[in-house]
Computed example of a mutant assay.
Amino acid sequence: MVMPPRGADIPCLEGDPAYDVRWAWNTDEPLRPGLTCVFRVKDEARNLPWVLPQMLDAVDHVVLVDNGSTDGTAELAQQIADDAGATDRYTGVAYPHRVSRAGSEHLATPPDSVHSLTHFYNWAFSHVRTTYSMKWDGDMALTREGVGVLRDLSWQLQGSGAVVAVPRHPIVVEHDRLAWIDLGSRFLEPWIYPMGPAFTYVKAFEWEVREFPPSSERVVAPEGMTIEVKWLEDDELAHWSPIEDFPPSRVQRKRREQEVDRAIRAGRAEEVEGIHRVESPDGVHVVDHLLTTWLRERERPLVRRAARFDV
């Protein structure tokens, strides 16, 4: 006897059952111990060779949700997983709907619409089958030390109910041997959560927010394990509404990114407190140099300025 599909936990407003949210914890199959990394990506093929192999080495499973890439992101990700011998630990899915940009577009979009950041994130995380999950971006690359930290957390977190904030250090690549890294501000955001009904995404004013109980322990991962790779020739704020839409008190991080971007383009990056020029040796890409050498050799603490941007 074929059983009918169970009802959706969060039906989408548009009535398409393929994009309803059905949480794994409401099935008869229990969640497996472990950590799953969930990527939500669009046109990240350029960054994936620095991002995906390390993550496949660090966590138990990777879910990559492609949101309409035109640069072969989905195909490259599958190839990287296959080449790493991780085909059985990789799940690639497509989300073809246009997602409202953070800011005023997001605010005007119903939270259960397929066009909402909130629904998009909940649908993406509904593919997780482990007890812990991690939000990650397609431009965030781990150092080897970062890989080790995530491997340890994968088993240490089990049963704890803790959430983990991961510091990341934005870089802007000017060319293959030159980048600028921002160590003038502390970018600290919870990225790792247990899976369960108390840890789902809800709508906030400018973007989606993952809820967690006030009693949850908050763990902060070490500095120097993650860089966020931006490219000077790209418009890195394209997925945001105009920055003027946001109250300054809630978008300090984005305003800092804008300040750094403008300073680099104007040739005055070294005038901005906390911005460091990084030049790699001949034959070494600056991203590789940062991940393997520069961050490891840098004196701790990396971020000495008081400014801290928590999300």
Results as ranks from 00 to 15, higher is better:
residue 84 A to W: 07
residue 21 V to N: 06
residue 200 T to L: 13
residue 151 R to L: 11
residue 61 H to M: 11
residue 46 R to V: 08
residue 235 D to Y: 05
residue 153 L to Y: 15
residue 165 A to V: 02
residue 296 R to F: 04
residue 87 T to D: 10
residue 284 V to D: 07
residue 283 G to W: 13
residue 155 W to V: 14
residue 40 R to G: 03
residue 218 R to H: 09
residue 275 I to E: 02
residue 131 T to Q: 13
residue 57 D to V: 04
residue 137 D to A: 05
residue 301 P to K: 13
residue 63 V to D: 09
residue 285 H to W: 10
residue 104 S to A: 14
residue 300 R to M: 12
residue 180 W to L: 08
residue 130 T to C: 15
residue 68 G to P: 12
residue 177 R to G: 12
residue 152 D to G: 01
residue 235 D to N: 07
residue 127 H to W: 05
residue 105 E to Y: 00
residue 11 P to V: 05
residue 86 A to P: 03
residue 31 L to D: 04
residue 206 E to S: 13
residue 47 N to A: 06
residue 258 Q to D: 00
residue 76 L to G: 08
residue 219 V to T: 06
residue 242 P to V: 04
residue 166 V to M: 13
residue 259 E to F: 07
residue 196 G to I: 02
residue 239 H to S: 09
residue 255 R to H: 12
residue 245 D to K: 06
residue 289 H to R: 10
residue 216 S to F: 00
residue 251 V to L: 06
residue 214 P to L: 08
residue 38 V to F: 10
residue 287 V to N: 04
residue 80 I to H: 08
residue 306 A to Y: 03
residue 39 F to Y: 11
residue 239 H to A: 06
residue 39 F to T: 12
residue 281 P to I: 13
residue 308 R to Q: 15
residue 282 D to S: 15
residue 243 I to C: 00
residue 228 E to K: 00
residue 135 K to C: 02
residue 90 Y to H: 15
residue 185 S to E: 09
residue 146 G to C: 06
residue 252 Q to F: 00
residue 28 D to K: 00
residue 23 W to F: 11
residue 4 P to M: 00
residue 161 G to W: 01
residue 122 N to K: 03
residue 215 S to Q: 12
residue 297 E to N: 14
residue 204 A to F: 09
residue 36 T to L: 06
residue 156 Q to H: 08
